[in-house]
Design a protein around this nucleic acid. Sequence first.
DNA 1: CGTAGGTGTTAGTCTATACTAATTCGAGGA
DNA 2: TCCTCGAATTAGTATAGACTAACACCTACG
Lengths: 231, 231
Amino acid sequence: MQPALRDPNPPLTRSVEDYLKAIYHLSSQGGFAATSDIAAMLDVAPPSVSGMVKRLSETGLIEHVPYRGVQLTSQGRRAALRMIRRHRVLELYLTQHLGYDWGNVHAEAERLEHAVSDDLIERMANALGQPQYDPHGDPIPTAAGDIEEAELVALGEAPIGTKLELRQVGTQDPARLHYFAEQGLTPGVLLTVSERQPFNGPTTIALVPSGDPRVVGRELAQLLWCRALGT
Amino acid sequence: MQPALRDPNPPLTRSVEDYLKAIYHLSSQGGFAATSDIAAMLDVAPPSVSGMVKRLSETGLIEHVPYRGVQLTSQGRRAALRMIRRHRVLELYLTQHLGYDWGNVHAEAERLEHAVSDDLIERMANALGQPQYDPHGDPIPTAAGDIEEAELVALGEAPIGTKLELRQVGTQDPARLHYFAEQGLTPGVLLTVSERQPFNGPTTIALVPSGDPRVVGRELAQLLWCRALGT
DNA sequence: CGTAGGTGTTAGTCTATACTAATTCGAGGA
DNA sequence: TCCTCGAATTAGTATAGACTAACACCTACG
């Protein structure tokens, strides 16, 4: 009997998948994800990140420029988008079919995304009618790995008077999500900015077509991402 | 800052949960589960079992008698039944709500049972109407940890002429499960034994009320567990 | 009643992932 | 231009869980 050979293409472990997702999110804007930011996002110590970064670049999932940061390779990006599809399909399924509210799905999906099969995800996606967005309005990558890149503007920066569609709610914090839901601020809602206080004050908006007003503080207004629909 | 204390009551890891389930199944008949049987069931080497057995008895989940085997403590039994509830609720949910067939649910449930929350399992159980049996007819433990102990007889041993209800199908092998399903032999079906060949030959049965006959080979007849319903 | 063969356990090693402590790098202010 | 300080990396260690090889225990058979 030969000594057992190592599987040359092992399934990704839980941790690896988490690192790839974190790097995807951190490098989606600027080019490189910093070690310390990855550490903060995953709640591990920076040396743990250095160690994992070494392993991931050896397997070709990321590109590492020492003291600068890391970027996903196309293979790493594909793996990250697969996890993001799983996460978002799970979140939507749990809210639509099992009565979860959008403030509580995140933790559950976070654990399940590592355990489900691709088959199960596709069955859930079919049961949901191949949805494009998760409960927070984030786009769901396709099974092929394509993701919509939307042109969105934060409510706190949006021009006054323009008609807007609320598209994404950029937080997973249950308390904030409950608050937004109470205020009727969920993806798909139409609104216009009627007034904005200077010096980082709150933004006042009106829902469309009802005209109901809402006042949204500066910090929260930065979490609500909108698509401009013209005047 | 104090040196970080170890969590005195850590969540069970994937492996620990698998060991407890295996020990539960192996010791449900006789008193002790043997090291080598546990190793075979989990597909690990015997010394791995010895190592885990030491850890599990230190944490009070099992009782170990060296060279004899192991038994669950009441705490270990509770943990095992919790996993079995998860597994069986998941299997039923996947078949009822996501179109899985009973031959393919096992592997999926095996992975998910370690990742789901108690909350999710209870939501699934509610969506299913607090079911008592999984797709194979195995009883689902309650959330409180009680499990039905049924008086069942294998079809190969059942008396001739008595009315029987097929209650459990004792295999997870997809090929056999497909075959049983084709033959209409699923939990809940009523039947009687019309004839049995001597010397370990096949059993001939008639479905009730249709009277359709089936011939079931010796080995398969040992997998079909029935409840006697009187004459 | 003693031993052979199998089952169980111990000893020692490996990998993945984490940690702390110590060290090195590099960019921005004096 | 040089130095300093925060960020990143290396060094060394720990833990869970697996493995192989070697040793110990039991029992059933001759």
